[in-house]
């Protein structure tokens, strides 16, 4: 479980997150949705400590993450996997080296154990025979899958995904969504996904938090988002012509 309490974050006097309190549940695919510039990425980065919050607290189970120093946070960070918008694979390393890096740094496994674990994770994301390729040689979908493999290689307890579908075609987006959802359930981890892809919301959103202008505007699940009585949320959810038609058809 990850809990944010009264998070406030500003940049150069401009408040980006304004008193956000939310709880993300273990074993569920939690989604943060909102328009571009609403503060989703800042919230995600504040949760993992890439941005220091101005006030408020972030709890990882019973541990107050915000009160920890760099060394103490390290212990929790080993339990965190994160998938960045662009994949953030190390350009100068191969797929295998990218996935193996956390094992190299934080385990004492033998070379063959590491190789087995890397291959297992790559097979888990359905990526075979790509070990020797460099990120520049991969497609967008493959990059995301390698990023997922790297994120799960140390068996994380928490998985963060920043717009995992951005730049992908609809079919590949579904594959990535399903993969993240499967992994969440399989390993019973707390997954938080930033997205503005409504397809993801309706497919895998077990808990959804809508952020608008830096504030939590609504929270619920995919089952009740379409019936929500919230003008800003409805403007966001039914922004596309297809969604509007679907609503009229209901």
């Amino acid at each position: 479980m990850i809990r944010a309490e009264h998070i406030v974050k500003s940049f150069d006097g401009r408040v980006v997150l304004d008193d956000i309190s939310v709880e993300f549940e273990t074993g569920k695919t939690n989604l943060i949705i909102g328009r571009s510039g609403s503060g989703k990425t800042v919230l995600l980065k504040s949760l993992v400590g890439l941005h220091e919050v101005d006030s408020g607290r972030v709890w990882y189970d019973q541990t107050d993450f915000t009160s920890l120093g760099f060394r103490d946070r390290k212990a929790i960070r080993k339990d965190i996997g994160m998938i960045f918008q662009g994949g953030a694979l190390l350009d100068s390393s191969t797929v295998e080296e990218n996935v193996r890096l956390p094992l190299d740094l934080f385990t004492n496994q033998s070379a063959s154990e590491k190789r087995d674990r890397v291959n297992f994770c790559l097979q888990r994301v359905r990526l075979n025979n790509a070990n020797g390729l460099y990120p520049a040689e991969l497609s967008g979908g493959m990059i995301k899958r390698v990023a997922i493999a790297r994120a799960i290689v140390l068996n994380p307890k928490y998985l963060f995904c920043d717009e995992p579908n951005s730049g992908l075609d609809p079919q590949t987006s579904v594959v990535i969504d399903n993969l993240i959802h499967e992994i969440t359930q399989e390993y019973h981890i707390t997954t938080i996904i930033n997205t503005h892809d409504m397809n993801s919301v309706l497919e895998i959103g077990e808990k959804i938090v809508y952020i608008h202008e830096g504030r939590k505007w609504w929270e619920g699940s995919k089952e009740n988002i379409l019936q929500a009585d919230n003008r800003e949320l409805n403007d966001f959810v039914f922004a596309s012509a297809m969604a509007k038609r679907a609503r009229q058809a209901q």
């Binding site: 980065k45 993992v48 890439l50 760099f70 946070r73 390290k74 212990a75 960070r77 080993k78 965190i80 994160m82 960045f84 918008q85 662009g86 953030a88 694979l89 190390l90 350009d91 890096l101 956390p102 740094l105 934080f106 963060f160």
Partner: peptide, 18 residues
């Protein structure tokens, strides 16, 4: 610089790497 703007440095930090 490229690693910074493509979030590769953030990815290392998240892993707990200095």
């Amino acid at each position: 610089g490229t690693m910074r703007i493509t979030e590769q440095i953030d990815a290392l930090e998240i892993m707990g790497v200095n």
